[in-house]
Simulated assay, not measured.
Amino acid sequence: MNWRDLLYFSQGERRALTLLLCLISISWIILLLTDDKPKQIPKENVQIIEPAKTAQKIVSKKPNPEKVKTPASGRKNNSSREKNKFHSGETPNTSERRTFPKTEKYPVGTVVELNTADTTILKKVPGIGSTFARRIIKYRELLGGFYTVEQLREVYGLDEERYNAMKSWFSADISLICPLEVHKMSFKELCKHPYINYQQAHIIEQLRKQKGKLSGWENLQLLEEFTETDKERLTPYLSFE
């Protein structure tokens, strides 16, 4: 059949041939489109994995912590038990605590000499602990020694009530006082004494320059810087030799 023969078809034949070609083209297009779609898998062949079941399977594969214990895990368990005991209100084993021996106190009637006692002896007096024992020793070093038990009132922090409770436990030996040598002590050394202030140390230094040597309290008692109270307090501590 030659293509020229198409020109001799009737109008009805040409319409029928055109429709047939259109149907054939549509069929090929449908076939091409359906081949590109992914093939659906039947539901009965699909395996659904549930998270809960997989978690159980994974956990079951882990080793039992009670059967397998390492030294590190043992230490962690012990420390966690101790923390739980502490938070729960249980008292820890007293044998593990660091204990300090209690200082034995002197019996009633014991008398301690203030100018020779060290901190160990002072702490054996009822009412005196480490803090007050150190303060008493420090103040004694500044003074040069105690000439009366009443000077304990001047120790920092020692109130009247505590002093009245402990005064009967002490005595003071005046012969153990280390006096200040007025002709040898410098201005700064004189100022360090609790009973000598800046003005008093300054006037002593001026008198030494003027007179060369001070004979005794008669050189100081007429000065306004030194009162009768100062003389009473300083007499055991100043040496004019």
Rank of each mutant, 00 (worst) to 15 (best):
K85G: 08
C22P: 00
L122R: 05
T34R: 14
Q221W: 02
T18Q: 05
R15C: 05
K69G: 02
T131C: 07
R4W: 03
S186M: 00
S27P: 00
E224K: 12
I121Y: 03
Q40K: 15
S239F: 11
Q47L: 09
C178T: 15
W169S: 08
T99R: 13
S80F: 10
S10N: 07
I196E: 04
S130F: 06
E241P: 00
S25T: 13
T110Y: 08
Q40A: 12
R208A: 09
K69L: 10
C191H: 01
L6D: 10
E224Q: 07
E224C: 00
E50F: 14
T54E: 14
I26P: 00
H87T: 08
I49P: 00
L142A: 09
E241S: 07
L223W: 01
R98T: 14
K85T: 04
L122A: 03
A72C: 00
I49N: 14
K105M: 04
I29C: 11
V68S: 03
L220K: 03
P65G: 02
L158I: 15
G89L: 12
D173Y: 04
E189N: 08
K53A: 11
D230Q: 01
T18A: 15
Q56C: 06
E225Q: 14
K184W: 10
R75C: 01
R153G: 10
E218A: 11
I41G: 09
G144R: 05
L176C: 04
F187M: 02
I49K: 12
L190E: 03
N164V: 05
T227G: 12
L143Y: 12
R15K: 14
I174W: 02
G89V: 14
Y106F: 15
I137E: 12
N78I: 02
P42F: 04
W217G: 02
G12L: 11
S25I: 13
K231S: 11
K85C: 03
H87V: 12
S79N: 14
Y147V: 12
T119W: 07
I128Y: 04
F240G: 04
N197W: 10
C178G: 08
P63F: 03
L143S: 09
G157D: 09
H202P: 08
M1I: 08
T227Y: 09
M1Y: 05
V108H: 11
W28N: 12
I30L: 11
K67S: 13
K231C: 10
R81Q: 07
Y106P: 08
L33H: 05
A52P: 06
I196H: 09
K85H: 07
N64S: 11
L17N: 03
Q200K: 13
L207D: 10
S10R: 04
R208V: 04
V46N: 01
Y106I: 15
M185H: 09
I204E: 03
A16I: 06
